[in-house]
Design a protein around this nucleic acid. Sequence first.
RNA 1: GAGCCGGUAGCUCAGUCGGUAGAGCAUCUGCCUUUUAAGCAGAGGGUCCCGGGUUCGAGUCCCGGCCGGCUCACCA
Length: 508
Amino acid sequence: MSLEDDILGQRFASARAVETLGFRPYGHRFDFTHTIPDALERYGSASAEQLEAERAEVRIGGRVQTIRRMGKAGFAHLAQGGERLQIYVRKESVRPEDFELFKNLLDIGDILGVEGYLFRTKTGELSVHASRLDFLAKSLLNMPEKWHGLEDVETRYRQRYLDLIANPDVRRVFVTRSRIVASLRRQLEERGFIEVETPMMQPMYGGAAARPFVTHHNALDVDLYLRIAPELYLKRLVVGGLDRVYEINRNFRNEGISTRHNPEFTMLEFYQAYADYRVLMDFSCELLRRTALDAVGATRLTYQGREIDFAAIRRLSLREAVIEFWRRDERPTSDERPRLEDLADPDWLKRHSGAAGSGAALVEIFERIAEPHLFDPIIIYDYPLETSPLSKSKPDEPDFVERFEIYAGGMEIANAYTELNDPQEQRRRFEMQRKLREGGDQEAHQMDEDYLRAMCYGLPPTGGEGIGIDRLAMLFTDSKSIRDVILFPLLRPEGPLGLADRLKALEE
RNA sequence: GAGCCGGUAGCUCAGUCGGUAGAGCAUCUGCCUUUUAAGCAGAGGGUCCCGGGUUCGAGUCCCGGCCGGCUCACCA
């Protein structure tokens, strides 16, 4: 018999004994007067004398975190909402069954309700002087160690609930993530955007360059793709007159997993009719500035040891960025810093990149030369048309489109453009993509005639933008890995645990 | 997909040159009415990730596999 079976058996026996004492081992309801954070907020600064005078009666509930038993009395900490409050259980102050419960049957991890009055101990800690205990739930398995918490990364991801119990910082990360999303929603709502939900299962995937997950619908007998982006559906809605529309939801891309990539990730996409990418640049800066304030209370923050400031976002064209970040020592050749004319010269581009087209080469060079250095938040604008099949071209530079990306912490966090709204031009772009696809580019955009049809009815001039919520959460919580801001990141499935059999054996 | 690193008690970790498997917390028994990483005395608990191999002998060395992390590639 392993130790864990031993513990499971002990705890199961303890749950039965709790029942024999007259408690329910798994309670139904507990009417508390304060959450633990509320109680600390309300009474955290009250002096011992004030507490004694007021003798505030409270009922609190939470998970038992520590127990210190001393013969005829003892202390425990209850944890709730990321905070903890001490309780003091004295034999002569509670019912006999309460003390029996506390003395012999309570385990770390159990959920307990306590009624009593607030006081301060000798050492000054706010505590509940218990008059009555309620048993609310038994914990049958050992909790992680109290001092070091749970460090095993795999267990933290697979059993996130344990991570949340044992590591208070983890809770803060996900609270911050929630604040980010709430702030973005609030700002968009304030500007008259409405939130919608568009299909996650799509007969044709588009709106980004990525490989999709495929699934199958039995009744219709059709293959469907999990969406790689909601873009084409949101723009159909703009055609339908939803001039300001947004969606915050999951995208799925069947690609590698890394510290910056999870196969499912959350994206905000919003579309504003009658706006262009210049309007979105200004809006983005304000959006990020206020999200930072709402999420962490400041626009300056530290990411991986370096300060970044969301109130001061630089703007640089893609070509300017290549020139600015050009470094001879990172090049295999001894070329001098290029001039703008070089970046327009197909021969020069061919010499410096293996990519097929001039546009792809320019982007490849940018990603190699400049991207790693984009740590401070920065807007990079004017991308080659070739790599942007859904963006509107620049009137004075037909090989470039009105598109920008925002980088911060060395990561791309947003992508935006003036939407292409000319159906003939869109058809030609799709045909260009089809040629790339026939040339072996699996991620090239598919011809989407249904989308073309919508555009034929007339898409107003529109600016659209996508912001990666997970990466924003990484920046605002100083997380190195995207898995630390996703509650249940994708892992290979575990084998059978055998827990059902062990529980069954206990019952027999 | 490639390279590097890791997997030992429920948790956090030691384990020397290949020679009987260790500590703290947690658990169990006893004592203890203001403790707080409570304390004191005692006890139990191991598929050393899995499978082969070398060896008189493997947690330790070799090979294969599984799972995870990091870096790179792809991508956002």
